[in-house]
Structures are given as C-alpha cells and as structure tokens.
Design a protein around this nucleic acid. Structure first.
Lengths: 345, 345
DNA sequence: TCTTTGATCGAAACGGGTTTCATACAGGAA
DNA sequence: TTCCTGTATGAAACCCGTTTCGATCAAAGA
C-alpha cells in the first residue's frame, strides 16, 4: 500500500531505522557488510527515499524555482533549459512558474516558491527587480536574476550586454551607409528595451546622426507586434532604410510587414534582430542578429545559484557579450550609395 | 533566524500549535474570534506555511512533474505552459525535467519525481510509453501522456489526431493536383512520425497514387534536419512537387533548402508543415500547416491529471483534431496543370 | 586485570505541520 | 442538582527521514 520506508527495511533487516538511514547514505559509521546487506534489502524491497521527509529535516530540498515571464517564448525556453540542465547535473530539481509578465504574479510566485522551501530562485526578465530588495530581506532565499539587472548592486545576476551589443549592431548598419535607422522596441521589454535603445542612440550620436523620434516605435516582442510596428515605420513620409529590432521575433514580424508593403530585404530595408533564435538563420532572408547564448546564460545563472547554496559569498554579476551575426538581412544602403555617387555593383 | 513556524505563533498567541494549524486552515473547530486573532498574529509575524512539512503529513505535495523531451523546442514550451497554467490555477506547482529525448533519462526523471513525491506526472512525447506499464505498477503515481499514446489502453492520454490530420493535409496537396508528394519525417518522432506517415500513406493510396520509397526521407524535427532532408529530395532525378513535413521546424528548414536550390515556394514546390508554431504565419511564404492547439493540449492533460488526483477513475483518452491552416506555401501543381491542359492563371 | 579506545549500533529527539483522541467547560434538558 | 450535549481547545501521535547522544562490546594499552 504505502511506499516502503526505512522503518520497513529496518524491521526486515532486524536493525534500527537510523542504521538503515546511515547505510543508505554510505555513512562509515555502519559496518560494511551490514550496510551492504541493508542496501541489498532496500533495492529488493523497491525502496525509494522520500525527498519530502529528507527536505523537512535537512532544511535543504535540493530544488530551485525558476520564474519565467512567458514560457511560450522560445527565448525563455532555452534559458530555462540551461538552468534545468545544470541543476539536474547537481541533482537539483526545478520548479517552473509562469508569471505572464505580470509583476504581482511574479511576487506571488516567488512567495509560493518560498513556501515550497526551494533552496534558491532564478528569475528571468524580472518585472519587479527593484522590489526584490525588501522582499528578499524577508525571504532569505538566494535569488539570481537573468537579464534584469535592476539593482545591480543588490542581487547576483547574469545579463547580456545590451548596450554594447546594440551599439555594435547599429554601428554595423551605419557602416553600411544607413542613416535613417529605426528602433523597433518592446513596450514590455523594460530594462532590456531601455538598454538596447541606449545602445542604438549612442551609436547614432557617435556617428553624428540625429536621433529621430518618429523612427522609434514599439512592438511587444512578438512577430505580430513587430509586424504592426514595422508597418507604422513604413507608412512614414520618410521611412527608414534600416530597422534595428528589439528581438528576432519582432524582426520576423518586420520582415513580413516589409514584404507585404512590397519592399525587399535587404535591398530596400535592412533588418537586424536580437537573440539569434534558431529560426533566425532560416528566415528569408536569413537574419542578421545579435547572438545571445541562451542556454549558457541559464547554466551560468544556475551555477551562480549553486555556488551561493554551497556557501559562497559576495555578489557575482556576469555580463555576457552579445555576438553580432551578420547574415543576409542587412546590406549597403542603396540611397546612401547614390548620395555619395558610388558606382552600383 | 529560522522562519516562523506555527509553534512560534502558538507561543505568541498563548494557544497550542494544533489550534494555530486549525485557525490557519479556517477550520470551524476553532472559535471565530480566536481564529481571527491567530491569523492576524500570523501575518504580523510574517508566517509562511511550510509546504514540505505539510506534504509529509498529508502525503499530498500539490506538485506535478512534467517530463519534456526538449525544452528548447517551442512546441514543448507551449504545451508545458498550458500544463503550468492549469496546475497553478489549482495551486499546484510543477517540476520540469528535460529528458533530452533519451529513454533512460526519461525513466530516471520519472523515478526522481517519485522520490519528490509529486502527486502526478505529465509526460510529453514519451520515449518509453510502453515501458511505463511495469514501472507504473511499482510507482503508483498517476501519469498522463501527451502525444505518445503507446499503450492506449493503459494510460490516460491527450494526443493530436495525427493520422486524421496528415490525411487531411496530404489530401489538400492531392486536391491541388500534386502526385509527386514527399514525406519529410522525424527520425526521433516515434509514434507521431509513424502516424503522420500512415496518414500520408493512406491519403496517397486513397487517391490511387503510389507510395514511392525514395520520396520518404527523415529529418530530426529541427530546421537543420529539415533542410538537409529536403536537399536530398531535391537532388532526386524526379524531385517531388510537394513536401509534407513532420513539423513546422522541419518545414522551415525545407523552405530554406528549396530557396538555396533556386526553386520557389509554392510555384515549384508546395510545403505543408505541422504544429502551426507562431512563426509559421511569418515564414516566407506563410506556411500551410496543421494547427495543434498546444496550450490547450497541455491544459487538457493537466485537467485529466487533476481529475485523477481528486479521485476520478477510468481512463480518459482525448484525441484532439488537427486543423489544416491553408496559407501560401501550397499551390496548384504546375506540372499537373500542364498535364491536364488547364489554362495557366 | 583494569581502563581506554574505537567501532558499531540503538534510543530518542527533531523538523513543521495535520489529525485523532481526550478533556474542560458552558448551556440545556430532565 | 444531575446528566447530557456540543463547543473549544490541548495532548499526543504521526508522517519519514537525519542527527545527536549514549550504550555495548571487543581489542588494545597500562
């Protein structure tokens, strides 16, 4: 009926249950042959340790909680996969909870994790980074934030170098002769959006180009949102010759909008994405984008968390550089070429 | 130091700890005003119940385990999202574990879940469906399988109607005049692959068309695999005029291969995918595909599991019909048109 | 021979809740 | 007043492990 416990084994083996416990943990305190006999009996009886009971007494559950904004986003899935991978290598299990990009829900989820007595928490793209400080003081659970380095001095974090990467991406466009460059952001992107915009802005200013308000539009991180936002750009009296998108999903939507508008990529408009999702290289044309090592970021965050759990102290902030992957959605600006009287190829 | 327990509250309130327990559970056994006083004190002291301890005594942890083959696949992410959504609505938490499409690991993961005393398990695209029978007898944990209805009579399951959906998809191609139709499968697709192939085969035979061995190739469910497999098809002396793909990811790879090969979709080759991933409608051209309601499938599976947990008996097998979404990657077969001397449009 | 030491193991406590059972007491009926 | 009933609460057991402490015993040293 009930699963076998160490007491059942103890009875069967004619020893006390602590002895069984020790034998199963390979404690040197029990005679080798006795221990072997007990272990044999345990496997014979189909014993499976009860992690719940163990967690109660040891106050370590060997679980970590992962809070994710939208599980349906392949980006998050891959980061989560990295977290899970490293965690499971270290015999940790991971709870996953979706907060649907809702700050209240994010807090609720974290509190639920606390009730579950997870050993640590990883939060991806937190909505409430700044609010964790007081919450955490109350919680006393190690937290690592991924791509939401709000209070950079309070929490351990792993984040892509948004500013540097966008700078690089937009400089790439500038080097191709573009000057009418748009930024297609994510209204829910929070910090990441702000930083990527900052990189965009910095690149323009660095090249002596103006930052035109009408060339900044907002999507929502999805292809649909990207499509709609790009359509707005194309409807401008002076549409951009290049669009730097918040992420690949938006960029894919933008590609679609441009096609619908009867223009070609990259001949008429260049597009740069962000993330390098697996499908980016299969877009038509293959997308120039900034690669974010997603699984690595997940693994890194989990690694920091595990370090924290094994007693390491001091903050760790890993800033991961993005890598610009140049594919075929970006090309020399045709109008620029004619401006400076270069011969067409 | 330690988190506050009901005993701490009991001491502070001058009652016994069972009374506190009852008050917090809104048991009618404790006087209303006492209960209120206790609850006020609990919140004042920042009490958070310990789910581990509760799980130990009640033998219900309110957790479910989700086994997923590849978390990085957006398909799985969305199903998982559905599972998590319904679970969290019912105050269940979900453990997620990746088995990397490895049967041994899948079994290990399930056993780990058992140690964690999850109340139930959802397995997506199981590698070892058939093996669960003996394992389960030993485990005694309710399991629901998603898209892996191996022993259809042993486990509760939710599955897409692979055969019916493929039949419909391939009939669509046939109705467009195609007769050289290829099947681009997934070597790791197991049952799903077999069933989709069966639907393909049935459609061909039903239309009096031959099933040509060389027109059946295998990818691995990824764009890369689809690209490679499609390239093999295009290299045939008599290449297909239409390709029915195991999933959208493969189809996207195929689109890319066809482009590289200098052919156009759908003018030269029609492509049908499977899943209707969010990006399917943003492919170029937008992909004709079979829609699988992924989140719904996850929710449904979780619903069955929760029913099981609340004592329902009897098997539930939900077969979800796929919906053919016709977009622009399929068109009338040009060679067929010339064969039957129809005027070109 | 007596004490010390180390090896081996059992008894008991503990973790933080829930549940059963017993008790105390107030109010109502006889 | 006595008995009964119901309400409100506490004591204790329990869930299943781990850990501390103490006991036993044999071997080794004094």
């Amino acid at each position: 009926m009930k699963p076998v416990s160490i007491k059942d084994i103890a009875k069967a083996a004619g020893v006390s249950h602590p002895t069984v416990s020790r034998a199963l943990c390979f404690s040197p305190l029990v005679k080798a042959e006795t221990a072997q006999r007990i272990r044999d009996m345990a496997t014979a009886m189909g014993y499976r340790p009860n992690a719940v009971a163990r967690g109660l007494v040891t106050r370590r559950t060997r679980t970590i909680g992962a809070v994710v904004t939208t599980l349906t986003d392949p980006f998050h899935g891959e980061v989560l996969s990295g977290v899970e991978e490293l965690a499971s290598d270290h015999h940790y299990s991971v709870f996953v909870a979706n907060c649907n990009a809702d700050a209240d829900r994010e807090i609720r989820v974290v509190k639920l994790f606390q009730e579950r007595r997870v050993d640590g928490i990883v939060v991806m793209c937190s909505r409430v980074g700044a609010l964790y400080a007081p919450l955490l003081r109350e919680l006393k659970i190690p937290i690592v934030l991924i791509n939401s380095n709000y209070p950079n001095d309070v929490f351990d974090s792993v984040a892509i170098d948004n500013l540097g990467a966008s700078l690089q991406a937009v400089q790439h466009l500038i080097s191709l002769g573009h000057s009418q460059i748009a930024y297609l952001g994510d209204q829910f992107g929070l910090d990441s959006d702000r930083e990527r915009f900052a990189g965009y802005r910095q690149a323009l200013l660095g090249a002596g180009l103006p930052v035109v308000t009408s060339l900044t539009v907002c999507g929502d991180g999805t292809p649909e949102g990207g499509q709609a936002a790009a359509a707005r750009l194309l409807a401008l009296p002076e549409p951009p010759t290049a669009i730097f998108c918040y992420n690949d999903q938006s960029a894919i939507g933008a590609l679609s909008a441009i096609r619908v508008h009867g223009l070609r990529v990259p001949e008429d408009v260049s597009i740069v994405g962000f993330d390098d999702l697996r499908i980016a290289s299969f877009a038509n044309p293959p997308l120039t984008t900034v690669r974010q090592p997603r699984q690595l970021m997940g693994r890194t965050a989990a690694g920091i968390l595990l370090d924290l759990l094994s007693g390491s102290v001091g903050q760790t902030h890993v800033q991961i550089p993005g890598e610009l992957i140049i594919r075929r959605s970006t090309a020399t600006c045709s109008t620029a070429v004619s401006d400076i009287q270069e011969p067409a190829i």
